[in-house]
Design a protein around this nucleic acid. Structure first.
Lengths: 217, 217
DNA sequence: TTGACATTAAAACATCTGTTTAATACATAT
DNA sequence: ATATGTATTAAACAGATGTTTTAATGTCAA
């Protein structure tokens, strides 16, 4: 079973299992029969509780994805708020920690980013909702936080590209575990995640030069 | 039609249309009937020329994806080879230009990265082939190129994380056009792509500080 | 032309898909 | 206890899907 829901009613079980399956294999690869079987309930339960498959998919984003995203953002705020003064390094570290370690379990984090990546590849109504209500506002807030550290004459687009670059890295290290593990030969244990956070912070702050000497052999 | 194949035989048309549809919507969302209709040939043609749907998908990677990836890598080598001396900036710029502008048309580039991202989300046999034959070797070569510029004591894993970070950015700016356009409000025209290349180079070389002053207001 | 082979076409097949129906069980309030 | 609204079940439905079959068509050498 994929993550134990607090209330053990069929509706919750369906949502939970549906999310896990949608994340892993995508909307069309998953059948209602699979979902209801995993949730130990009758085939008709999906249509009874959610109307149809498409709305079940939307409800996954409304009831599970969105609250979880908010938990991550709350963690970000919390990490940032704990600091005496806000620095550029502090902001980046807060992002990296919230997204790569954060309040989510490993399974949750994987599901979460897989669903998002699938939406980025082919956006549906869910994407509109999530960008409008969660991701968009967050990136704007991040831009406002970072702007004071940037050149005065830097355009808003440039600023947003900086944000996107940070985000692209944390998304990548979350959802592309497979290639990352395969190429680096490392497991996603606590130690490796610490290294990942450290790496993201270093890279975002000073790029390749941050750890290099810049010398030519 | 999705990109005009050189030889106008049904087999080629099917491959071409299949790739476009698989990239846009994923394996299960696409039906053989759709593919053959788009390719203006009979339903049975897929099973005649490719045996079954699964093998058609694999052939897309073997016959279209892989050669195209090699074209991109060849462009990378070419850009790098044209330089008088190899610098860190030169390497990063070569990667960014090859992947973001490169030898591919806009449609090709989008398809290419969408297919890859779908494979990263849920790897199939195609992923194994592509990582083993193209992506893996390329990242190793990139690591060898960059190593001389890094600290002597830097571990191989750290080095590969640097590579992954560069790659994650170019992949992101290729396949996540939708969110990027939506959030920055820009179109993916030649001008914007130039800006993207410039941004990636700057960011990878010196991170956020590269364009900022680092001052606290 | 004839014969052999490769390709295309149309139809049929078995299975799977999302959805609906109708019947049943269950709980709670009167 | 009875009635009422809710939740579950099993069965059926219509349409879609991958695949196979069988026939027709084209191609080209002997």
């Amino acid at each position: 079973m994929a993550g134990t829901p607090k209330v053990d009613i069929p509706r919750e079980r369906i949502l939970c299992e549906a999310e896990a399956l949608f994340a892993e294999r995508g909307y069309y690869a998953v059948t209602i029969r699979e979902i209801t079987k995993a949730a130990h309930c009758n085939l008709a339960a999906v249509n009874y509780h959610f109307g149809n498959k498409e709305n079940l998919y939307m409800e996954v984003f409304r009831c599970l994805w969105k609250p979880r995203a908010k938990r991550v953002l709350a963690r970000f705020e919390s990490i940032l708020g704990a600091k005496r003064e806000v620095t550029l390094a502090g902001i980046v570290r807060a992002v990296a920690e919230a997204f790569i370690k954060g309040p989510l379990s490993d399974d949750e984090r994987l599901r979460h980013s897989q669903l998002m990546v699938r939406e980025m590849a082919k956006p549906t109504e869910a994407f509109e909702m999530v960008v409008g209500e969660v991701i968009g506002p967050f990136q704007q807030k991040l831009a406002d936080l970072i702007r004071p550290f940037m050149d005065r004459e830097m355009g808003q687009v440039s600023l947003l590209l900086q944000i996107q670059s940070i985000i692209s890295m944390v998304i990548h290290f979350n959802f592309a575990r497979n290639p990352v593990m395969r190429i680096t030969g490392r497991e996603y244990d606590a130690r490796f995640k610490d290294e990942l956070v450290e790496h993201v912070v270093q890279f975002c702050l000073s790029g390749l030069n941050g750890v290099g000497k810049g010398g030519n052999p």
